[in-house]
Amino acid sequence: MARMTSRPLTVGFDLDMTLIDSRPGIHACYRALAERTGTYIDADLAVTRLGPPLEQELRHWFPADEIPAVAEAYRAMYPTIAIAATPAMAGAHEALAAVRAAGGRTVVVTAKYEPNAKLHLAHLGLDTDAVVGDLWAEAKAAALREHGAGVYVGDHTGDVRGARAAGALSVTVATGPCDAGELAGAGADVVLTGLGEFPEWLSAYLDAPRA
């Protein structure tokens, strides 16, 4: 199996809609937040545009001066409402296992609040070598470079931008709010239907001759 000798294999993964289907938990959390604050939130709509930071979604429903406090309330209620309601995406365990089987490391780099991201991974038994939260789009590049990730797997055009900013190969899965055409149009190097295709892709990638 051919490998790049200059950089050990490290694969970064996004979290929401890449490794986990966070729609049920986030939907329930938005409904609880609406009840708590007395402010209408269209939870059905909100879960169709997951990916960007929480504060970006809250701007659709709350005045700017209320957002810090509302975000804090959301994050505080999140563990008891959203964690148990959130399943792993099909192929998530197998994708992480494929990297480990190849002798590589995995790092989750996500816009989600880091403590809650770690709770999701622990609850679902998704074992990764590192977790970095609170980073979106190009800001993800710093963590990807720090951990030496040569590949970043995500579901959003923001993930493509993060991978490209880090000089990493952008591998995408069309399981989130962005379809295959949007991902390709944003400059993704690889577009997969879902993580179920990732182990085969990784095997072929590692077998390919390196310059």
Score class of each variant (00 low, 15 high):
Val107Trp: 05
Ser170Ile: 10
Pro199Ser: 04
Ile67Thr: 08
Glu197Ile: 00
Val109Lys: 01
Ser22Ile: 09
Phe198Ala: 07
Gly133Asn: 08
Tyr205Trp: 13
Leu195Gln: 00
Ala139Phe: 10
Gly196His: 01
Ala69Leu: 13
Leu192Met: 11
Phe62Glu: 12
Ala73Cys: 15
Val191Cys: 06
Arg164Thr: 13
Ala186Asp: 15
Gly187Thr: 12
Ala34Thr: 08
Tyr113Gly: 10
His60Tyr: 13
Arg105Gln: 08
Leu9Ser: 12
Pro115Met: 13
Ala101Pro: 11
Ala186Val: 15
Leu19Phe: 02
Leu144Val: 00
Glu138His: 08
Pro52Gly: 07
Gly185Cys: 12
Ala64Phe: 04
Ala180His: 10
Glu66Val: 12
Ala71Ile: 07
Glu197Phe: 04
Ser170Trp: 07
Ala69Asp: 15
Glu114Val: 03
Tyr113Cys: 12
Pro79Leu: 15
Trp136Thr: 03
Met77Tyr: 06
Ala166Val: 13
Val131Ile: 11
Arg36Asp: 15
Tyr205Ala: 10
Ala184Phe: 11
Thr86His: 01
Ala208Asn: 05
Val190Ser: 06
Asp189Leu: 05
Val151Asp: 13
Glu197Gly: 06
Asp134Leu: 14
Glu114Pro: 03
Glu146Gly: 05
Glu197Ala: 14
Gly148Pro: 02
Pro199Glu: 04
Tyr78Leu: 15
Ala143Arg: 01
Gly185Val: 14
Thr80Asn: 15
Val131Met: 01
Ala166Phe: 13
Gly125Phe: 08
Ala76Lys: 08
Thr48Ser: 02
Phe62Ala: 11
Pro24Gly: 00
Asp16Thr: 02
Gly103Leu: 07
Ala130Leu: 01
Gly162Phe: 14
His156Ser: 04
Asp189Pro: 04
Lys118Ser: 11
Glu197Asn: 09
Ala88Thr: 04
Arg59Val: 14
Thr80Ile: 00
Glu55His: 08
Gln56Glu: 15
Glu114His: 02
Glu55Ser: 14
Pro52Asn: 05
His123Asp: 05
Tyr152Thr: 07
Ser203Val: 02
Pro79Asn: 07
Ala69Gln: 15
Thr106Ala: 07
His123Ser: 11
Leu169Arg: 14
Glu94Ser: 10
Thr157Gln: 09
Gly187Arg: 13
Asp155Thr: 06
Ala73Ser: 13
Pro53Thr: 02
Leu202Phe: 15
Cys178Trp: 14
Leu121Gln: 06
Ala184Ile: 11
Leu19Ile: 01
Glu182Gly: 07
Val11Gln: 06
Ala71His: 08
Ala117Ile: 12
Arg210Met: 09
Ala141Arg: 03
Ser6Arg: 11
Tyr113Ala: 12
Val107Thr: 03
Val191Lys: 05
Arg164Met: 09
Met89Gln: 05
Glu57Arg: 03
Asp44Leu: 05
Gly12Cys: 11
Ala174Arg: 14
Thr48Arg: 00
Gly148Val: 03
Ala84Tyr: 03
Gly187Asp: 08
Ala122Tyr: 03
Gly181Tyr: 06
Leu54Phe: 05
Asp189Gly: 06
His120Met: 04
Leu54Tyr: 09
Leu9Gly: 07
Val70Tyr: 02
Ala165Asp: 06
Ala139Thr: 09
His93Gly: 10
Tyr113Met: 09
Leu135Met: 07
Ala82Gly: 08
Leu144Asp: 04
Ala141Gln: 07
Thr37Asp: 02
Ala90Val: 14
Ala130Asn: 00
Pro68Leu: 03
Leu135Ala: 03
Tyr74Trp: 15
Ala163Val: 14
